[in-house]
């Protein structure tokens, strides 16, 4: 019971809505423009860096939690946040170190789990 009572249901709802809206934007870009998925990916990360860099994105994270951190925008914002923080403590070189440092967990986990998945899974034809 304690676990369920501790859940912030409104935060879950906000997370769902914000994360969903970000995905809808991506889907519209795939369906309505000629942008390739790779370009949309880069666009989202870059936009996240800009929004994180000017300090706007943290309000969205406060509001929607994982709904804002999990999509690619969150990755971009995290890069920017890390770069700025490291630059403040260790100077110009920190701007190059900080971003990767802040997102190192995510990057390493992606490589690790990607590798594990490639050992146990075989890629298949798409359904559609």
């Amino acid at each position: 019971m304690g676990f369920f009572q501790s859940i912030d249901w409104m935060l879950l709802l906000r997370c769902f809505i914000v994360g969903g809206i970000i995905c809808i934007i991506g889907q519209l870009l795939i369906d309505k423009t000629k942008l390739s998925p790779a370009r949309i990916l880069v666009l989202f990360v870059t936009l996240g860096v800009i929004l994180g860099g000017i300090g706007v994105y943290k309000y969205l994270i406060d509001f929607a939690g994982a709904g804002a951190t999990v999509p690619l925008l969150g990755f971009g914002a995290n890069l920017a946040k890390g770069a700025i923080q490291e630059a403040q403590t260790s100077g110009l070189l920190g701007a190059f170190i900080g971003g990767v440092k802040a997102s190192a967990g995510g990057i390493a986990a992606a490589i690790f789990f990607g590798y594990i998945a490639s050992l146990v899974a075989k890629s298949k034809i798409k359904k559609q």
Binding site: P37, A38, S123
Partner: peptide, 21 residues
């Protein structure tokens, strides 16, 4: 072959990209 052609001309299937309309 769908799978070899996607790999050749578009993206690897492992990437799981959506196809455009």
């Amino acid at each position: 072959h769908f799978c070899s052609a996607e790999k050749q001309f578009r993206f690897p299937l492992e990437l799981g990209n959506q196809r455009t309309p």
